[in-house]
Design a binder for these strands. Structure first.
Lengths: 334, 334
DNA sequence: TTGTAAGCGTTATCAC
DNA sequence: GTGATAACGCTTACAA
């Protein structure tokens, strides 16, 4: 293939390698005629600079390592997309590895990235200990997205999930609901825990007790939404609203309700979390807490780029936005 | 950060660079004691091989370039995910660039990949001319996914979209539908054209004429599904079934129907294409033609890996599978 | 302004 | 078996 090197075009243009490099990078002024000759040869021979060699020489690889967890979750995938978008026109290309939500493979993945001498890191989610991250990354700029850290040890862009859970729940309470079921996310997942905490807080603030029978386990899957509603129904627990840990779970819950012929929002109100694309088009359109996933990814991309350039970047805590659609209504009068 | 090189550990282990390289790569037998010393030093100094340098020396970068189009389409994203999964344990890491469905940026994207000296290419969708691809790639192995080519010039993994469109339509015809509307995909998109061709073929085979009023333009978006149904309704066109170009469009169509209080599948049957995750949980669960997106991506990954290793790989044409759920029923008796 | 030469961290080719 | 030493393709002092 294209194995034409800087040397070849040097010869063709009757100049030295250095001169070629100079005109290609604009790193110094060269005589007009030589410049022209170089450019011409470059075009004629179809020269494509070898980024690998350039990286080795400069010590910068112009690539950003992105660690995803790849559970196929719409949310995380969207964040990753945001990173790709955010990196456009920065000159950096993203290289992806996935940790599969397992600490050891996460560490390996990060090491693989570092071995490739990425100039910066974007870590989406994950569970490796903070100090371990610090140690691994060394001086490579890193930003962590969609994960709350306990310390200020790293720049992060994450969402306030307790606030999100609080807003969702409060919205339903304001509509008049008193028996709001919650189908939680993965047990140990910080986001799930925080959203539940928001649910709790909203109840407390309203002076409402939480019936333990209304709290269902889940795992962010649609299936757990189905299971949650089925359980509620099987146990004949009274409820007029359901807060699902995320939209997928809400879709599952909605389907279970549909199967029993229970109308939404006529008989039961439903609220999700994330605002993934399909939420707009579900029937009824799903009221949900929007997480700005794509924007978070984009910001993260800009952040690493800035960090690499020696600029500073402050950790961001974004807030979810309640997206009012049609799955929430006052509880039935009965 | 970790700037310890092979040289450092050579010194620490009292051997030469070459020996270190040898034990690290197992490329030749070295004395037990030296081997041990090297390994020990490697661990102790926390040595991480510099992949960039290795790539330059070996002429292989151990990375696979993946060109996506990144329209945020569930289908293409899933293919990309499949590639990531398929590359696991192959030693190759994927690096992503996106062409945004524009020929010139596609070409640039591929060039960027080639400049990084990727060992292989996976091109997902896209519209660059085949001969241009050939010319660009040179001797770099490439496989094209989710795109039908006219010639045998490249290995491809794609779906038979006319067959898919045919199956979907025939299914509805078999259920007794005679007035099946279709909301097409993007006008010039080959997949859209093929699916429509399948729709036509099924009609022809059944001896059914196609009322032009039943053929709606679309663009694979949910909005175009809404618009399609709205138009049908506004023009008072009779129809008992809708074939949407993909699931997103079907979701849009379903919502438009819902808004008018038209029951699915009681009054109107609906069929989609893709079988994206949410199709299982829509209400009613959507009957659709499943495209094995993830599998296609995985296969593509294995294919490039094989190609790089000098093995052969035959182009694959997979067939969609009709996934029977609950959105199709016989037309109302009336 | 321009060329020479010394790296960048590995691997590969030699001799020994 | 093992160690010099020359690539790999590019950038970047350092001279001229």
């Amino acid at each position: 293939m294209n194995t034409v090197t800087i040397q070849d075009i040097a010869k063709a243009a009757n100049v030295s390698k250095s001169t070629v490099s100079r005109v290609l990078n604009g790193t110094a002024t060269v005589a007009e005629d030589k410049k022209k000759a170089v450019l011409e040869a470059t075009k004629r021979l179809g020269f494509q600079p070898n980024i690998v060699a350039r990286s080795l020489a400069k010590g910068r690889s112009m690539t950003i390592g992105v660690l995803t967890q790849l559970i196929g979750s719409p949310f995380y995938d969207t964040v990753a997309q945001g990173v790709i978008i955010g990196l456009r026109d920065t000159g950096y290309s993203p290289i992806f590895v996935d940790g599969q939500w397992q600490k050891n493979s996460e560490v390996e993945a990060i090491q693989a990235l570092l071995g490739r001498r990425v100039d910066g890191l974007v870590l989406i989610g994950g569970g490796v200990a903070e100090n371990e991250i610090t140690q691994l990354c060394g001086s490579t700029p890193a930003v962590i997205v969609a994960r709350k850290l306990n310390s200020e040890s790293h720049r992060t862009i994450h969402m306030d999930n307790v606030d999100g859970g609080y807003r969702a729940t409060r919205h339903m309470i304001e509509k008049g609901h008193q028996r709001i079921a919650i189908i939680k996310g993965l047990g140990h997942h910080p986001d799930a825990i925080d959203r539940f905490e928001g649910y709790r807080k909203a109840h407390q603030e309203a002076g409402l007790d939480i019936d333990p029978g209304l709290v269902l386990e889940g795992d962010f899957s649609a299936d757990s939404g189905v299971a949650g509603v089925d359980k509620l129904l099987a146990e004949k627990t009274l409820f007029t609203a359901v807060f699902a840990a995320n939209d997928m779970t809400a879709f599952g819950a909605r389907l279970a309700l549909y199967r029993k012929g229970i109308r939404v929002p006529g008989e039961v109100s439903l609220i999700g979390f994330d605002d993934q694309m399909e939420a707009t088009y579900s029937t009824p359109p799903l009221t949900t807490v929007r997480q700005p996933a794509r924007e978070m990814g984009q910001q993260a991309a800009h952040a690493v780029a800035a960090l690499i350039d020696g600029e500073e970047f402050e950790s961001q805590c974004v807030h979810g936005e309640l997206v009012l659609r049609e799955s929430v209504a006052p509880p039935p009068a009965d």
